[in-house]
Amino acid sequence: MSIATERPNPPEADPAAAAGPPRERQRFSGSGPLRQIQVLSGRSLRALREPALVLPGVLEPILMLTVFSQVFRSVSQAQSFPAGVSYIDYLLPAFLITSAVSAGLKSGVALTTELNNGIISRFKSMPIHTGTILIGRSVADTVLNAVNMVVMLVAGALVFGFDPEGGILGSLGALLVAVVLGWSLGWVFMALSAWLRKPEAMQPVGGMVNMVLLFASNAFVPTDGLPSWLRAFAEVNPMSHAITAARSLALGEPRPGTVLMTLGICTVMVAVIAPLAIRNFRKAS
């Protein structure tokens, strides 16, 4: 070091402005959990004002929709395919579900990123409830997911000729199932993230879970055409139930049992996993 280790003159600025007078510090009153959730979810949604962050989320499903509807169109000629149904009407409800899975995965990856860049440590050192950090993210991601899906439905109707028997009401029902599924999977991936901590661990693990859930299901082709071992898994895969439920609503042949079971499974999953996620998250530092 050079000679410049001498102290400079103390700064002239009014010190009281920095942290209040020494004794009686003017302190904010503290906030309740609802305010915390509102502020934290607002934060996540505000960050998405940047087009560079929003566009991929919207474009990706539309791009995939294009690819799948063209590549797999021949599937609708297969014997096991329901008669009189166009492939896009069959595909789009499933697509709502698959994008719900991707949205859930994104929640988890985003959380690991924040666990490592220090912002979470800042929140955890503040007088707020740890759980509201996760709940805030869940609320924001669920809202965002719903918006993305509306875009998909509209694009599907305008560009790809999506016009199912169930009409607008049935499509909205399918959307509701997908949003609820995305909400519950968001918690699954956040729990995974609180446990794995590192984005470089979360990305591949999440990707694997995502892929198994997606492809070992009836999302893209009817399960009847699958080899028996894969079919066995596809039929217990919760994704398949969600897809069946969404499809039945969109295609105008609602299966209340499957719909209720899907919503029930999702709610139970959140009830069990959310407290675990919050507990793990509290310990992670």
Binding site: G30, V39, R122
Partner: peptide, 11 residues
């Protein structure tokens, strides 16, 4: 906004 966020969380 970062600072506003913190202040809002503090009540």
């Amino acid at each position: 906004h970062n600072l506003i966020l913190i202040a809002r969380l503090l009540g």
